[in-house]
């Protein structure tokens, strides 16, 4: 049974707060640092390069159309945003399929009823 991802929406980014630091004496760890730490070194390098465009990405994401595009077709999003991405990431993003990511996840209740959660995703700026 195909799962429906409904009401995808995004909260417009309000500002950039996750850069490497916001002041000389108060270095702040980037919010995506943990995400990056989980990646393989060769992908991490490409992602760091991509995330260096954070300010521009967030600016694009304030446009709901662009936000929706990111959810459905990340390659096109970056192309329209004129943000360059490495061939490796491009290849991987091209393979991204939203529906496939959310394979069917129903739950069978004792009375035989099948419960299919309605999932609403909101992309946050931090």
């Amino acid at each position: 049974m195909a799962k429906k991802i409904t009401n995808r929406s995004i909260t417009p980014a309000k500002g950039l707060d996750g850069t490497a630091g916001t002041g000389k004496d108060r270095p702040v760890k980037a919010p995506y640092a943990e995400t990056l730490s989980k990646l393989a070194p060769h992908i991490k390098m490409h992602m760091e390069e991509l995330f260096s465009n954070e300010e521009q990405i967030l600016k694009q994401l304030r446009d709901p159309k662009q936000m929706n595009l990111l959810m459905k077709d990340p390659v096109q999003f970056f192309g329209k945003s004129k943000i360059e991405i490495s061939p490796l990431l491009k290849k991987r993003m091209a393979a991204f399929n939203l529906e496939e990511q959310f394979a069917a996840q129903g739950f069978v209740l004792p009375n035989g009823q099948i419960m299919n959660p309605n999932i609403k995703i909101t992309i946050k700026d931090k």
């Binding site: 992908i43 995330f51 990111l70 991204f96 990511q101 009823q113 992309i123």
Partner: peptide, 28 residues
């Protein structure tokens, strides 16, 4: 009893979403 399908609200940071687009399995 009978239930409605539950509504799950999922908030994901932008960088995780991009990571997911690259890695796929992360989001799944």
């Amino acid at each position: 009893f009978e239930t409605d399908n539950p509504d799950i609200d999922l908030d994901i940071p932008w960088y995780c979403w991009i990571g997911a687009a690259v890695l796929g399995a992360l989001l799944g």
